[in-house]
Amino acid sequence: MRPGVIALWALVATILLVIIGIFGSLVASGRVTLFPSPEPTVEPIPEVAAVIDTSFSVVVLNATGEQGLATTLKDEIVAAGWSADSVLASQASVTDFPETTVYYAFPADEAAALGLAEVIGGARVEQSDRYQPLDDPGTDELDESQSAQLTVVIGLDRTAAGAPEPESAE
């Protein structure tokens, strides 16, 4: 064989081995992925529209030290269309709840909770079964066959002391 052909084959083999080595080290270090996994698609969470649903019973708990807030809020809710029999006002066991919140038990009740929050002039809305009655006294579980109930816990943000102070123009 000719020496030029042997040198050419040696050069091609060397270049090929260097390329394979570089590619292999990139794969081993994770900089190149041979079989990439598909990117998960993120679907937007559908926004729930507020609905005023007066079929829900409402419990209003005053979790502040200021007297009369639960009764005042009950009157606002009744004026918005709820029957006086379906709205109960009471004092909570705490007096330092920070922010007025409307609680609902099931995802299907979120629209009604948002509607009630609008009726009372704005409030945080949160899903929780903490304030829901249990229909069956023998169980500690909540099920959707129960009567629909929303609970408003009045926070310090609704008191004169908890109201935000106006900003001064300095």
Results as ranks from 00 to 15, higher is better:
9 W>L: 15
12 V>K: 00
23 F>G: 12
30 G>H: 03
29 S>R: 09
30 G>C: 01
29 S>Q: 05
12 V>M: 12
13 A>E: 03
14 T>Q: 05
33 T>L: 07
27 V>H: 00
21 G>Q: 01
23 F>E: 02
40 P>H: 13
9 W>Q: 14
33 T>M: 06
14 T>V: 11
27 V>K: 03
10 A>C: 13
34 L>Y: 05
27 V>I: 07
25 S>W: 03
33 T>P: 00
37 S>Q: 14
31 R>K: 11
9 W>C: 15
13 A>S: 07
34 L>T: 02
36 P>Q: 05
9 W>A: 15
18 V>R: 03
15 I>W: 11
22 I>F: 07
41 T>Q: 15
29 S>P: 04
34 L>I: 06
37 S>W: 08
42 V>Q: 12
30 G>W: 03
26 L>P: 00
22 I>K: 02
17 L>W: 03
26 L>F: 06
39 E>P: 10
41 T>P: 09
37 S>T: 14
23 F>H: 02
39 E>K: 13
29 S>H: 06
26 L>H: 05
24 G>Q: 01
38 P>R: 15
20 I>A: 15
10 A>V: 11
38 P>G: 13
27 V>Q: 03
19 I>G: 13
16 L>Q: 12
37 S>F: 09
39 E>Y: 10
27 V>S: 00
14 T>D: 07
16 L>A: 15
38 P>Q: 14
41 T>C: 06
30 G>Y: 03
21 G>A: 04
20 I>V: 14
31 R>T: 07
17 L>F: 04
17 L>K: 07
16 L>T: 15
34 L>M: 03
26 L>R: 07
34 L>W: 02
33 T>K: 11
34 L>R: 01
21 G>C: 01
42 V>A: 13
16 L>Y: 12
28 A>C: 04
14 T>H: 08
14 T>S: 06
33 T>I: 02
40 P>M: 10
37 S>P: 08
29 S>C: 04
21 G>E: 02
31 R>E: 08
40 P>L: 09
21 G>K: 02
9 W>P: 09
8 L>T: 14
40 P>A: 14
31 R>S: 12
19 I>C: 11
22 I>C: 11
38 P>E: 13
41 T>I: 13
28 A>H: 04
31 R>F: 06
21 G>H: 01
26 L>G: 05
29 S>D: 11
35 F>W: 12
26 L>N: 06
12 V>Q: 07
29 S>E: 12
30 G>A: 02
10 A>E: 07
13 A>N: 01
22 I>W: 03
20 I>W: 06
35 F>V: 11
31 R>D: 12
23 F>L: 13
33 T>Q: 10
23 F>V: 13
13 A>K: 09
29 S>Y: 05
18 V>W: 10
9 W>F: 15
37 S>V: 09
15 I>A: 15
20 I>L: 14
38 P>N: 13
39 E>D: 10
25 S>Q: 14
36 P>D: 06
8 L>D: 09
33 T>N: 09
34 L>H: 03
39 E>V: 12
27 V>N: 01
40 P>D: 10
32 V>D: 01
28 A>S: 00
9 W>V: 14
40 P>G: 08
14 T>L: 12
11 L>S: 12
27 V>Y: 04
18 V>I: 08
11 L>F: 11
19 I>E: 09
40 P>W: 04
12 V>D: 00
26 L>Q: 05
21 G>T: 02
25 S>M: 08
11 L>Q: 04
26 L>Y: 05
34 L>S: 02
